[in-house]
């Protein structure tokens, strides 16, 4: 066991972890932040995507020990300070960018990382950026649309219903 300390969603936290404790296990089990999901074991589905020092990372493919001293943001930290949905979260609701909700936390975190790097992405850029996030419900249509809408682009021309 070794002690790790990090900032999670703006709050300083610490805990004792084993070497093989994954960051996602620390978040879900020790901190009870169960919004970060585990959908695969080969680092492909992206349901566990979080931000580490402002950059997206897969919490299932990183040890908690590697996050010692890091600034972590999870989906629980994405809403506005008053608890209302952030622009990205609101766009996902407005455009029906989620169904079962399981991949959604990862999608929100990846979308946030994308818009930080590229504030007005094209459709192709959004699709490419989602390469590491698998959704089985939506066929991606409304996810791509929601992310483009969250970037302030007019999505009314994209087939709706």
């Amino acid at each position: 066991m070794s002690k790790v300390s990090m900032t999670v969603n703006g709050k300083a936290v610490s805990g004792d972890v084993k070497g093989n404790t994954l960051l996602v296990e620390f978040l879900r089990e020790d901190l009870r932040l169960t919004g970060t999901h585990v959908g695969c074991d080969t680092s492909q589905c992206g349901a566990c995507t979080i931000h580490v020092n402002g950059k997206s990372a897969k919490a299932c493919t990183m040890f908690a020990a590697e996050a010692d001293g890091a600034d972590i943001t999870t989906v629980e930290g994405m809403a506005n300070a008053d608890g209302s949905l952030s622009v990205i979260q609101q766009a996902f609701q407005d455009h029906h960018g989620l169904q079962c909700g399981f991949c959604t936390p990862g999608m929100v975190m990846t979308a946030a990382a994308l818009l930080k790097e590229n504030p007005k992405p094209t459709e192709a850029e959004v699709r490419h950026y989602l390469e590491g996030n698998i959704c089985r419900c939506t066929g991606y249509h409304n996810i791509v649309k929601a992310i483009m809408a969250a970037s302030g682009q007019d999505v009314s021309a994209i087939a709706a219903e």
């Binding site: 989906v75 809403a79 996902f92 609701q93 407005d94 989620l98 079962c100 936390p105």
Partner: peptide, 13 residues
């Protein structure tokens, strides 16, 4: 708009 989305979008499902 779906009411269930709020909990899924905020990690509180």
């Amino acid at each position: 708009k779906r009411r269930e989305d709020v909990r899924f979008l905020t990690g509180t499902g």
